[in-house]
Amino acid sequence: MAFIEIDHIRKIYRKATVTVPAVNDISFVIEKGEFLAIVGKSGSGKSTLLNLLGGLDTPTSGEIRFEGENLFAEGKDGLVRHRRHRVGMVFQSFQLIPGQTAAENIELALAFGGVSRTERHTRALELLAQVGLAERANHYPTELSGGEAQRVAIARALANDPDILLADEPTGNLDTQNGDIVLSILQDLHRQGRTIIMITHDPDMAQVAQRTIRMQDGQLLEAL
């Protein structure tokens, strides 16, 4: 039994009269501790696949099994548990909550994850230290550089110690220098044993991954 099994997954968007198959009958497996890169042009369906893996979206048909257990079997409650404890997500545009400081953004994820009030702040500071931003704890997202914001977002994704990190073009909005920092953090996390699934359109970025899969028109083009 593979760690993650993507089994004939299909997601079709219906817009007015046309139906757009964003993900069209994809099957593959991901092993535990793997660093997987998914590449493809925009509109190839890679983000939709990542959202399905993250439990943010539900498929039209097919299953995604984590350690043999179908993610979509238990409805909304199952998806909430999955997002809280099993996966952490990082986005191209950081997605920090604007009115909250770096520490508070992380504390909110900890609160959702069931960490007690007293522990939250300490844990948030530890996580920030892990991404080298301990001194930025009380800064608001607008006061952070892009690279810093993305590192806070990674720290938040790690808040509830998930096994899997899902990153949707994490370096897409960053310059090379900051992109490299983010990438090396992901590599560190991989070395610590986490499963990393990263979307990128940059072949160079894909180089750091152990395996790259290419998507086109909602289908798997080739396994490299």
Partner: peptide
């Protein structure tokens, strides 16, 4: 709206 999306993505339930 985006903030609500973020809250869901980081583990917030509908109830919360």
């Amino acid at each position: 709206t985006r903030e609500i999306g973020i809250m869901k993505a980081i583990g917030g339930s509908e109830g919360q």
